[in-house]
């Protein structure tokens, strides 16, 4: 009893304001959103579904399925792209390049630009015109004699969303590089030396010693990039605006609030939250176990 309220009281008091604020503004509003998504608040839209029907009818909709498909393409390209470039740059820099600081900053800088600002520029770079009318990247290709590479970018029905992921890869690869670089630097030199003394080739050194040590960094990168990608909205609005061909759930949600269909917008928001939760929650469980060790 000695360690009663005097023990945990101040600590609790300390975090009470943030518990209150987070409870109200995060979990309270999530709850409110879910209750709207189950309601029949469709504004002036003559649809009278409510409850779970809101979810089933949305999931059966071609338009929503298309938006999920677009999101999947975008996320895969975004993830693979950033992890590939991030790891490659980190490995190159880690080998003790001259002017490392310069390259590190150069790769990191795009992250400082907002998606909206870079989106405006990429909208022009990814212009779909070809031949004499080409601008942006297509123009560059035709000028340097690679006109075979000209393509419609995000206007392409099949792989448009992969082109849409290019600006995102450009912006976030440097960040992933920083994560990997920190991971690489935390590997003690003794491990490498021990492996070399045991006669491991450079390839086997990376394959069996370095990469396993990098998996926490890779997981962090995967989750951070993954959840950013699933919530993407600003980049797409800046590049193509409200176009069906590049629609993702967040853009669809926005369209529904514009016409006043609150229930449908809230339904999309809830599904989006669940999709992000699938990525983030296992990560949180994993890290809390890792830290307890």
């Amino acid at each position: 009893m000695k360690h009663g309220i005097r023990h945990w009281g101040p600590g609790l008091l300390m975090i009470l304001p943030s518990i209150g604020l987070v409870g109200l503004f995060v979990y309270g509003l999530i709850g409110w959103n879910i209750s709207i998504s189950l309601s029949d608040e469709h504004g002036s839209i003559p649809v009278d579904t409510s409850g779970i029907d809101n979810y089933t009818s949305l999931l059966q909709e071609q338009r929503f399925q298309d938006s999920l498909e677009n999101l999947a393409t975008f996320t895969i390209v975004f993830l693979v792209g950033t992890l590939f470039f991030g790891l490659m740059w980190a490995l190159l820099l880690e080998r003790g390049l001259r002017g490392e600081g310069f390259f590190r900053s150069m790769y990191l800088f795009p992250m400082a630009v907002s998606f909206i600002a870079s989106g405006v520029v990429w909208r022009w770079l990814l212009n779909a015109s070809e031949g004499d009318d080409a601008t942006g990247l297509n123009r560059l290709f035709s000028t340097i004699g690679l006109s075979g590479l000209e393509n419609p970018w995000y206007s392409d029905p099949g792989w448009g969303m992969a082109a849409m992921a290019m600006p995102a890869v450009w912006q976030l690869s440097g960040y992933v590089m920083a994560l990997f670089l920190a991971g690489l630097r935390s590997i003690p030199d003794e491990l490498r030396e021990a492996a070399r003394i045991d006669g491991a080739s450079e390839f086997r050194l990376y394959r069996h010693v370095i990469f396993p040590q990098l998996s926490p960094a890779a997981l962090s990168a995967l989750v951070i990039i993954g959840h950013m990608s699933l919530k993407v909205f600003d980049l797409i609005m800046a590049i193509s605006g409200e176009a069906r061909i590049t629609e993702v759930p967040a853009v669809y949600l926005w369209g529904m609030t514009t016409i006043g269909d609150d229930a449908k917008a809230a339904t999309i928001a809830t599904i989006l939250l669940l999709v992000v939760a699938v990525v983030v929650i296992p990560y949180l469980i994993f890290t809390s176990r890792w830290e307890r060790r």
Partner: peptide
């Protein structure tokens, strides 16, 4: 037409643009 109807037609026309 009401905004919601217009939104649905716009989406269908946008889909047609690629399909």
């Amino acid at each position: 037409a009401p905004l919601g109807w217009l939104e649905e037609i716009t989406s269908a026309i946008g889909e047609f643009s690629s399909s």
